[in-house]
Measured scan of single mutants.
Amino acid sequence: KMTIRVKGKELARRIAKEMKDRNLKVEIHEHGDEVILEIE
């Protein structure tokens, strides 16, 4: 399990899509400006 902190929703969406393309499970937690992606 891996956690990534990202500034900006646009970048977070791009990373999430990339991870889904690799068949990984992604959970997205938004905290205002910061987005936390949990990847399994």
Rank of each mutant, 00 (worst) to 15 (best):
A16Y: 12
D33H: 07
I15Q: 00
V35P: 01
M2R: 12
I39L: 04
A16M: 11
A16E: 09
I28A: 04
H31C: 13
I28M: 12
M2T: 11
T3D: 02
T3M: 11
R14I: 10
E27L: 13
L24G: 02
G8R: 06
I4W: 05
K17H: 06
K7I: 11
D33K: 05
K25Q: 10
L11N: 08
H29G: 03
G32H: 05
R22N: 07
H29S: 09
E40A: 11
I28L: 10
H29C: 11
K7T: 10
N23E: 05
A12M: 02
L24E: 02
V6R: 01
V26A: 02
E18K: 12
I39Y: 05
R14W: 09
R5D: 02
H29Y: 14
E18I: 15
R13L: 15
H31G: 05
L37R: 01
I15N: 01
R13W: 13
V6H: 02
I28W: 15
R22W: 07
R5Q: 05
I36G: 00
D33I: 05
A16I: 13
K25F: 07
K9M: 15
D33A: 05
V35M: 11
H31S: 11
L11M: 07
I36Q: 03
R5H: 10
K25S: 10
H31Y: 14
H29R: 12
N23V: 03
K17S: 07
L37P: 00
I28S: 04
E30A: 09
M2V: 14
R13Q: 14
E10T: 07
K7R: 13
E10N: 07
K25R: 12
R13E: 14
G32L: 07
G32Q: 06
A12E: 00
E38D: 06
A12V: 03
E10H: 08
M2S: 06
R14C: 15
D21K: 14
K20Y: 09
A16P: 00
N23T: 03
N23D: 08
I15A: 01
R13S: 12
E40L: 12
R22G: 03
I28H: 03
G8L: 09
K25W: 10
I36T: 08
I15V: 06
V6G: 01
T3L: 11
L24M: 12
K20L: 14
A12R: 00
L11I: 10
G32K: 05
R14D: 04
G32D: 10
R14G: 04
R5F: 10
K7P: 04
D33Y: 05
I28C: 06
R5V: 13
M19C: 10
A16R: 03
I39V: 11
K7W: 11
K1T: 08
H31I: 14
K9V: 13
E10Y: 08
R13G: 08
E34W: 15
M2K: 08
L37V: 06
E38A: 07
V26S: 01
L11F: 06
I36L: 08
E30L: 12
E10D: 12
I36C: 05
D33E: 11
K25V: 09
M2G: 04
A16G: 03
K1C: 12
M19V: 03
A12F: 02
I28N: 01
E40N: 10
M19H: 03
E30Q: 10
G8P: 07
E40I: 13
L24S: 02
I4M: 07
R14A: 11
V35Y: 15
E40Y: 15
M19P: 00
G8A: 05
R13D: 13
K1E: 03
L11Y: 07
I39D: 00
A12K: 01
D33F: 05
D21N: 12
E10W: 10
E27V: 15
L37I: 13
G8N: 15
K25G: 04
K9P: 07
H29D: 03
K20Q: 13
I39N: 01
E18T: 12
I39P: 01
I15K: 02
V6F: 06
M19I: 05
V26K: 01
R22Y: 05
M19S: 01
V35D: 02
E38L: 14
E18R: 13
K7G: 04
K1A: 08
L24F: 15
E34N: 07
I28K: 02
A16W: 09
